[in-house]
Measured scan of single mutants.
Amino acid sequence: LPLEERVTHFRDMLLERGVSAFSTWEKELHKIVFDPRYLLLNSEERKQIFEQFVKTR
């Protein structure tokens, strides 16, 4: 999958899993780590997309 598509899937997962915009990566990790979409991005990309996600929520 192209990166753009993987990012979209990852963001959808964050929304569906009820990730809080007022929380930290560490506190929200347990909600998403077992979702197959979690593995679409490498660890650096995951954290970066998470940070963007919480800023725009």
Results as ranks from 00 to 15, higher is better:
S43D: 06
P36C: 01
E28V: 03
L14Y: 08
E51Y: 08
L3K: 15
L29I: 15
H9R: 11
K55G: 10
L3G: 11
R17T: 07
F53Y: 14
K31P: 03
R11W: 09
E45F: 04
L3F: 13
E28D: 03
H30P: 14
F22Y: 13
E4D: 15
A21N: 12
Q52S: 11
Q52P: 04
F50A: 01
H9I: 15
L41S: 03
S43P: 13
K55T: 14
L41P: 00
Y38I: 04
V33W: 08
G18W: 02
S20Y: 01
H9F: 07
H30M: 06
L29P: 03
E5A: 02
D35W: 01
L3I: 15
F34K: 12
K27P: 04
R37E: 00
K31S: 02
F22C: 14
V19S: 02
L41G: 05
I32A: 01
I49W: 02
E28T: 05
Q52K: 10
V19N: 09
P36S: 07
L40S: 04
M13A: 01
K27Y: 07
F34G: 14
R6T: 02
L15H: 09
D12A: 09
E4S: 13
T8L: 07
E16W: 04
A21E: 11
R46W: 13
H9L: 15
F22L: 12
Q48N: 15
L29T: 10
F53N: 12
E44Y: 08
S20W: 08
F50G: 02
I32D: 01
T24V: 05
S20M: 05
F22S: 13
V19E: 01
V33R: 14
E5S: 08
P2G: 15
V7E: 08
R37M: 01
N42G: 10
M13I: 04
K27R: 10
E16T: 01
T8M: 08
E45K: 09
E51C: 00
E5F: 07
Q52M: 07
D35N: 04
H9G: 05
T24Y: 10
G18P: 12
S43K: 12
T8G: 09
R17P: 10
W25L: 02
I49R: 02
E26T: 06
V33C: 06
R46D: 09
G18N: 12
T56M: 06
S20F: 06
P2Y: 09
L3Y: 14
K55Q: 11
Y38M: 02
L1R: 11
I49A: 06
K55A: 10
M13D: 01
I49F: 07
L3C: 01
F10S: 00
T56Y: 06
S20C: 11
E16I: 00
K47Y: 04
P36Y: 03
Q52C: 08
L15R: 14
D12K: 12
K27M: 01
K55H: 11
D35E: 04
R11M: 08
E16K: 14
T8R: 04
H30E: 10
E51Q: 10
V33S: 13
K47H: 12
R37D: 01
R17Q: 10
H9A: 13
T24G: 04
